[in-house]
């Protein structure tokens, strides 16, 4: 018969604290779980006993040795690069102008190029205009910016304001600089499908700060609440 979750949790709490009064009280209230409680107390005691600390006198001297790096990811990247190169070569070979029927099939030699040199070559035949149209960098911002504009969810149950700001910034792939003077109370955050900047603006309204763009992917947090509404700006202009 399964143990009710509340009793289960209570038994763990008693086992972890191992207070004789609590054990006595529990055994009187729930006599049929007495043995189960004893088992848990033994389990916790055995577990804790295993975690005895190493005496300080045995601490070895620190040697700043190089950190070993697992070569597997590098190997897999190499395999992946070679696979892409082989597939690319095969696709290019298949889509090139076909040889005349009198020609025999040309032997295909596939060399594994350096991973960093893998690139796709345009076909010999004229490509569609869309693919060959010149790209204006001003109109087409780098792809990297897409990350900073990415919308995401942020739920922080309890954190200091500064930590919450940093967490939002990290998730949004931007850096923040918090100007001195910003208070650091505990905050809760629950934003859904917003960019990091939108979240910081919303948070700033509650905690008296204003996020200001401070260069590429960098936001400055000023401990000044921006109370100005769009209408106020219009009045000034008028």
């Amino acid at each position: 018969m399964p143990i009710p979750p509340d009793i289960d949790e209570l038994m763990w709490a008693i086992a972890e604290n191992d207070t004789p009064d609590a054990v006595y009280e529990f055994e009187h209230r729930f006599p049929k779980y007495q043995q189960e409680l004893m088992r848990r107390i033994k389990t916790v005691q055995a577990l804790r006993a295993q975690g005895r600390t190493v005496p300080a006198r045995d601490i070895p001297a620190f040697q700043a040795r190089p950190v070993t790096v697992d070569s597997k990811p590098v190997q897999w990247l190499g395999y992946a690069a070679i696979s892409i190169a082989v597939i690319s070569t095969a696709v290019l070979a298949a889509t090139r102008n076909k040889p005349t029927p009198t020609q025999g099939p040309a032997p295909i030699s596939v060399k594994a190029p350096e991973p960093t040199k893998v690139r796709l070559v345009p076909r010999n035949s004229p490509a569609p205009a869309v693919a060959t149209a010149p790209i204006d960098p001003a109109k087409n911002p780098p792809i990297q910016q897409a990350d900073t504009l990415k919308k995401f969810d942020a739920v922080i149950e309890v954190a200091k304001l500064h930590d919450a700001i940093q967490m939002i910034a990290m998730s949004g792939k931007v850096t923040v600089t918090i100007a001195p003077g910003l208070e650091n109370p505990e905050v809760q955050v629950n934003f859904t499908h917003m960019t990091a900047m939108e979240m910081l603006v919303a948070l700033g309204k509650d905690y008296a700060f204003t996020p200001v763009i401070n260069g590429e992917n960098d936001i400055l947090i000023l401990p000044v609440k921006d109370d100005s509404e769009p209408n106020e700006g219009k009045e000034e202009l008028n």
Binding site: A46, P55, D58, P60
Partner: peptide, 11 residues
Amino acid sequence: SQGGDEPDPRV
């Protein structure tokens, strides 16, 4: 570095 540790085999 492990002076006097006696691991419990069950744990």
